[in-house]
């Protein structure tokens, strides 16, 4: 516990930490490596750490399968649900950051609680509503639900970023006679671009990975990647271990990158801005 008390001990602890971190990451790395093996190599004993890589699995998994259709669905649904959540959430965050009323705190807490309700609790009525409104297996249906899921995240995060804007900046704009729209678009928003990017990346992670609503409310046309990946619970025709690894790796890479990029804001996002 005393850093610097022993240089050797410190180095040992660092190596130990790195090894443990590597062990946690290893399954993902193994999946990544497996995706470049032939099916023979993938099930070979002993498992090989070094081998001549092949891109064949990736070609089959991405282009000889419905992968790209599902990817397209995920991208469309993710993009529009975040867009709607931002369009509705940023003005709400703005009102709650700068024009607080007695009810603001309660509204914020209520919003957070909606984000935490178990989707399983309302899946039946959602299914019935979707059935009656012809929303089953449509982009629109999932976009609405995911936008509602991302809305509290957007409000909480954007509000916490807005609270960091120095009040003098807003004051000055008001003294110059800026109206609400100008104050918002010209003064506040430019300062919030980084926050907006971080919020979008976090919303993307949650939306991309969502499975429960997707599997129950879509059947094929609008199903996102998570539904496709879940079909690998059993071997799918010629999609065996190596090709499965390629498809699963391709499905998680965008989110891994988003998460690595947004690392600094991850904690804020995971706790909805409650911890900075």
């Amino acid at each position: 516990m005393k850093p610097g008390s022993s240089k050797f001990g410190g180095t040992l602890l660092s190596v130990f930490t790195l090894l443990l971190a590597f062990a946690m990451f290893f399954p993902i790395l193994w999946m990544f490596l497996t995706s470049f093996k032939t099916e023979q190599q993938a099930i070979q004993f002993p498992p090989q750490l070094f081998f001549a890589p092949t891109l064949e699995n990736w070609r089959v998994a991405l282009f000889n399968s419905p992968f790209l259709e599902y990817l397209q669905n995920t991208v469309i649904i993710t993009f529009f649900s975040i867009l709607v959540a931002l369009l509705l959430g940023v003005p709400t965050a703005y009102a709650m950051a700068f024009y607080q009323t007695k009810r603001t705190d309660s509204s914020l807490l209520w919003m957070m609680s909606t984000r935490m309700l178990p989707p399983a609790g309302v899946i039946v009525p959602l299914y019935i509503i979707f059935l009656n409104l012809n929303l089953l297996d449509t982009y629109l249906g999932l976009v609405i639900l995911y936008a509602a899921m991302n809305f509290p995240l957007v409000v909480w995060m954007m509000r916490s970023f807005m609270l960091e804007v120095p009040y003098e900046v807003i004051e000055a704009a008001r003294l110059d006679g800026a109206n609400l729209r100008q104050e918002f678009m010209r003064v506040i928003m430019p300062l919030l671009i980084p926050g907006l990017a971080a919020t979008s990346l976090l919303a993307m992670i949650f939306t991309w990975n969502e499975f429960f609503l997707a599997v129950n409310l879509t059947s094929r046309d609008a199903s996102p990647l998570s539904v496709y990946v879940s079909t690998f619970k059993a071997a799918q025709g010629d999609l065996f271990i190596a090709k499965m690894s390629a498809a699963a790796t391709a499905a998680v890479i965008p989110v891994l990158i988003a998460g690595w990029v947004a690392q600094r804001q991850l904690v804020t996002g995971l706790t909805m801005g409650a911890i900075k």
Binding site: M24, P27, M31, F211, A251, V252, W260
Partner: peptide
């Protein structure tokens, strides 16, 4: 270390 958490849960399950 953060990577397992970022992974799609169904992909983690398949893995």
């Amino acid at each position: 270390l953060i990577s397992p958490f970022l992974m799609m849960p169904v992909a983690a399950a398949v893995l």
